[in-house]
Design a protein around this nucleic acid. Structure first.
Ligand SMILES: [Mn+2]
Ligand SMILES: [Mn+2]
Ligand SMILES: [Mn+2]
Ligand SMILES: [Mn+2]
Lengths: 224, 224
DNA sequence: TAGCTTTTTTAGACAAGTCTAAATATTTTT
DNA sequence: AAAAATATTTAGACTTGTCTAAAAAAGCTA
């Protein structure tokens, strides 16, 4: 139906939209796609001709409903495959992205449907990102970054904003994973680093770069 | 590393080799690939330039060791994925081929390694074809077609030569699957059809077209 | 061996996707 | 408002893989 390249463009546009970018410019998209602006222009024309997005030269682009459907479905496949790789095939969360980039383009409704069943209808992928449902709905994230948390309250790690293997390995090394419990002690004014306690044990200091990429929530049901 | 097209050509050449075709001609390959002879010539030149096969104009082609490695690995991936689809995701054996044609091109050694572990190191795919092992070894088939069987001996269905969904659905409809037990009664001289008994119950008549595509073996351990 | 048929290769075209370099638009500065 | 800087698009080229039509080679036939 659609080529890998088309699906990749549409998915990237959707992800920029989900990150709050309203109008997507050619250069932004070129950077996100690791390609050149001229290539982006060519592709935007093609996608506009297929009515997958609206494109006004020099004005940027916006997904149409059918473009949104393709993009959401590709994102759903990506995140279901990442979940499969971690839950079923013992991959770590820093190894799955590259493989899921390939698997997300496999065309088979039955395959994805059965994968969803097999995995038990997961709602979030190994990075804490919501998995778009079959009807296209994507749950809004109720999480916030660690630097916004109030001190001395129990927190649970729920996701990451940066998905680079380096960052994910760094977290793993310090024992931080999805579901980890922690308590923010204080923000150090000097370098904006954060002092915290992990799993009621280790005190830990995290730089502002790390803290701004860690999604958490308050632990409401502490004895669950 | 290699494109989908290259992998498909190499895999098809290997499969022709495994079917006993010695020298593979341009037209044979074109028919097997559902493409034109001119396209085949172009690709053979490219694959020869990459030392994946030897190609002499007008003389046909032969895989080199490195070409054989790529082809075998692609076939291994195809058959492991088919096994996954049937065993884990509840596909039927007539639905898997098209999806496996896509999945066989995913590039990740760890993925295939872990899939193999997860599936329990299967030796045969859902059609009874041997799964090439990691070292490239492909088990020779000890099976024979039903028309070669001696009458009145217990047989076990072990594979199929024709993989078309029509044929596979036909077998399923008559209760024939891998592992089915049957006994050949007689060959009808008039139309070369075969009378047999399935699972110690139903008598059944199968046409010569069906019989020549059914692989069986003698049931040595009847009480296993 | 000359002539016909079949097979295979070559020539030239096209589509998808990308790139560099050059030309326009747009935005920001002065 | 004109000049300068930046963003975007266009022009032209290249790669991969495919096709049709024409040319060349190989294989038969008599
Ligand atoms: Mn990912
Ligand atoms: Mn993810
Ligand atoms: Mn198959
Ligand atoms: Mn098979």
């Amino acid at each position: 139906m659609h080529s890998f390249a088309e699906e990749n463009y549409l998915k990237t546009i959707l992800k920029l939209h989900l990150c709050g970018v309203q109008v997507i410019t050619t250069n932004e998209l070129a950077e996100a796609m690791h390609t050149k602006a001229s290539s982006v222009t060519d592709m935007l024309k093609k996608l506009a001709a297929k009515k997958l997005l609206k494109y006004e030269p020099y004005k940027g682009c916006l997904l149409t409903n059918s473009g949104k459907t393709v993009a959401t479905n590709t994102l759903r496949k990506h995140r279901l495959w990442e979940t499969f790789l971690v839950n079923t095939l013992s991959f770590s969360w820093d190894e799955v992205h590259e493989v899921a980039e390939q698997l997300e383009h496999i065309q088979s409704d039955k395959l994805i449907q059965q994968l969803d069943v097999f995995l038990g209808f997961p709602t979030h992928d190994p990075h804490g990102d919501p998995i778009p449902q079959l009807d296209g709905k994507i749950a809004a994230s109720p999480f916030f970054t660690l630097d916004k948390a109030k001190p001395d309250k129990q927190l649970v790690v729920c996701g990451v904003l940066n998905h680079s293997p380096d960052f994910l390995k760094y977290l793993t090394q310090y024992g931080i994973q999805i579901g980890s419990h922690l308590k923010m002690i204080q923000i150090n004014a000097f370098d904006s680093s954060i002092a915290l306690v992990l799993d009621q044990k280790q005190p830990l200091n995290l730089s502002k770069e790390v803290v701004k990429n860690l999604l958490v929530k308050y632990n409401t049901n502490q004895y669950e």
